[in-house]
Design a protein around this nucleic acid. Structure first.
Lengths: 222, 222
DNA sequence: CAGGATCCGATTAGATACTG
DNA sequence: CAGTATCTAATCGGATCCTG
């Protein structure tokens, strides 16, 4: 069957937005991604085929525009698309409040996390010298985060700057800290490790604004 | 693949709530349905198998409880489930504002509409005498709405009261009026017909509070 | 009424290869 | 880089039959 057969706006909205991946793509656009492969970096498990389909669907329902930019296609939200923020925010708030946060969230990828961290670097707090942070976590692919004034980017090999810090150990610890579940000391106790100069180790947690929803804390016990 | 592999609460919430039908079931529970087949009346296209699965999933994530009532199982929302209202409301608001309302919404079922109308009868405005309204629309199954003081119910045959009114013609017109897209006169011009005494025909639109989201109007042009 | 169990067809998604 | 085309594998959903 294809539709819900309902007059109700909730059902009709869910028909066009409820598909797998769709709202995650909108989330990426809300966070500022514009290019096809930029969106993919935030959602690495989506296939190109499906991303392409979903973007076309979103254009079709009027939430997204596709424009030929100077360096290739660019996607952007329409006014209707921007209003999807309310839905995304409500989903995120509910998730932060009610989904078990300490549960063994082992099946996550590093790339979306790095992608988010790169977007939320506090430039002003960075040392003036350019540097690179190495992420060598669990079974994740090796990643490097380049931090220099006015430029932050993630890549698979050191782009040629001094390695100020290495992040090792358990990805789940890094994610728990980033999500606002625990402070950095607890993340270390959960198996995250930093290696580098004492100064860099101490400063690292201050270089970022945490995850956008980190301030939303779990609902009281149960 | 099963999960999105993301740390993000939006993605994690979507993993447990984003399945087909799931949020519609929550909508029904928010509207007051408690019994298995009561939920089905509001969502006739769901199969019993899937409804059963989805309810179990919702119990598993902690949004719903299942209790053995005197007359069989009853489902209810937990505190976490009640907070899903924010997501549902955001979805509904977006749908009312941005989804084309006049588009040929021909593929809808009468039953969910009657189900909703039955919930939103304005008792005080009803005549004192019990009565029945016949719904004979398009290719929809014949339905009867029994209105008597303190009791409203929909059924497939006249339960034995005078038929004050018959509603005929196009279901899409009735739905458009109910959703708040047009007034009743416009619904008639779109192919809806009422048959009965002049007084009943005039009074009919006043017997109901319209659809919960009827007050949310479309976003300005485009 | 409220499901569980099974089977089978429809849909969807991922992998792969190819294009401008 | 940004896709499209095609094939196949996995998943999902509906119909049917059965139970307490």
């Amino acid at each position: 069957m294809t539709g819900y057969g309902q007059f109700c706006a909730i059902a009709r909205a869910h028909e066009v937005l409820g598909g797998r991946w769709t709202l995650l793509i909108v989330r990426e656009l809300l966070m500022g991604s514009r290019r096809f492969n930029d969106i993919r970096r935030g959602i690495p498990r989506i296939s190109r085929t499906v991303l392409s389909e979903r973007l076309q669907d979103l254009v079709h329902v009027g939430a997204v525009t596709r424009l030929e930019g100077a360096h290739g296609p660019e996607y952007d939200l329409t006014p209707a698309g921007h209003e999807l923020f309310e839905i995304i925010a409500a989903l995120g708030k509910w998730g932060q409040r009610w989904l078990s946060r300490l549960a063994a969230q082992e099946d996550i990828d590093l790339d979306p996390l790095i992608h988010d961290m790169a977007r939320r670097v506090e430039m002003k707090r960075l040392p003036t010298e350019p540097m690179v942070i190495r992420f060598a976590l669990d079974r994740q692919p090796l990643r490097f985060l380049l931090l220099k004034s006015g430029e932050v980017s993630a890549c698979g090999e050191n782009p040629g700057f001094p390695e100020a810090l290495a992040v090792r150990g358990k990805l789940s610890g890094l994610a728990a800290w980033w999500r606002g579940d625990c402070d950095f000391a607890a993340a270390k106790r959960a198996g995250l490790r930093l290696e580098g100069t004492k100064a860099a180790i101490r400063a690292f947690p201050t270089w970022f604004q945490l995850y956008l929803l980190a301030g939303i804390k779990p609902a009281p016990s149960r």
